[in-house]
């Protein structure tokens, strides 16, 4: 049985889709923010793999084809962006200004917390690009000498946190303007936050997608400066 699964091309994909569907079902049924389909799917898959004693590489052999679409999907974010282009032309200062401040906040807060936890340079570089979308974050981490796999995990933790907490946090801090909401979500929690922003509304979603690009580019620049601090 294990030999068959190890050689199977479709095992990883099927397991991922089934686990994700279960995640969606549970979320729909209980309507709790903590029941994030991605988080649930990952927990279910890790459980199944541990029980069947199958390692990550074997699972990944099939499952990687799902992540293959990450770049085309990021490219596709241009479409919701294009539909809201008038909005972007109307508020260039608010958009560029707030995302720039957001990226700077990311760098400073990660730097200070890394000091607090006594992290070394490599660990610090692993975390610096964690608020941007995976496709960009991986490149930055690799180039700056971080641990790429852990950067991916940090990016996922970031995205899940943003996705789960966005509505509550924005409400607490009375951030009610749809444009501000979208910018806040996209800058802090990249594409994964953007899926939540799209659930909230079309303007929120478009602003969030735009923030991914702006924050991604600004982070690439900022990281090369902040890399020297620790």
């Amino acid at each position: 049985m294990k030999e068959f699964l190890t050689g199977s091309l479709f095992f990883g994909v099927v397991l991922t889709l089934v686990a994700y569907e279960i995640g969606l079902l549970l979320k729909k049924k209980f309507k709790l923010a903590i029941l994030n389909p991605l988080l649930l799917a990952a927990v279910i898959i890790i459980g199944v793999l541990l029980v069947l004693d199958i390692d990550y590489e074997t699972y990944s052999e099939g499952a990687q084809y799902i992540s293959y679409f990450l770049t085309p999907a990021t490219v596709s974010l241009a479409i919701p962006l294009y539909r809201q282009l008038d909005l972007l032309k109307k508020y260039p200062v608010a958009i560029l200004g707030s995302v720039a401040v957001g990226v700077l906040t990311a760098m400073v807060s990660i730097f200070l917390m890394s000091l607090l936890f006594g992290l070394n340079h490599q660990q610090y570089m692993t975390l610096l690009p964690k608020s941007i979308t995976t496709a960009i974050g991986i490149g930055v981490s690799e180039k700056m000498g971080g641990i790429v796999t852990l950067t991916v995990v940090a990016i996922s933790v970031t995205g899940i946190t943003g996705n789960i907490m966005a509505e509550t946090v924005l409400k607490w801090f009375k951030i009610t303007n749809p444009i501000a909401k979208g910018l806040a979500i996209g800058t802090s929690a990249h594409a994964l936050g953007t899926t939540k922003a799209m659930e909230i509304g079309e303007i929120e979603g478009a602003m969030s997608s735009l923030s991914i690009v702006v924050a991604g580019v600004l982070t690439v620049l900022a990281v090369s400066v902040f890399a020297n601090f620790l």
């Binding site: 508020y91 707030s98 917390m113 975390l127 933790v157 924005l170 801090f173 910018l183």
Partner: peptide, 24 residues
Amino acid sequence: ALVVISAVTTLIIMVVTGKVAQFI
């Protein structure tokens, strides 16, 4: 450190970005 830093900074960035955008 990874989980705490990732989660906490996400919320800080979200609030700061949102507040600045709303202010402007």
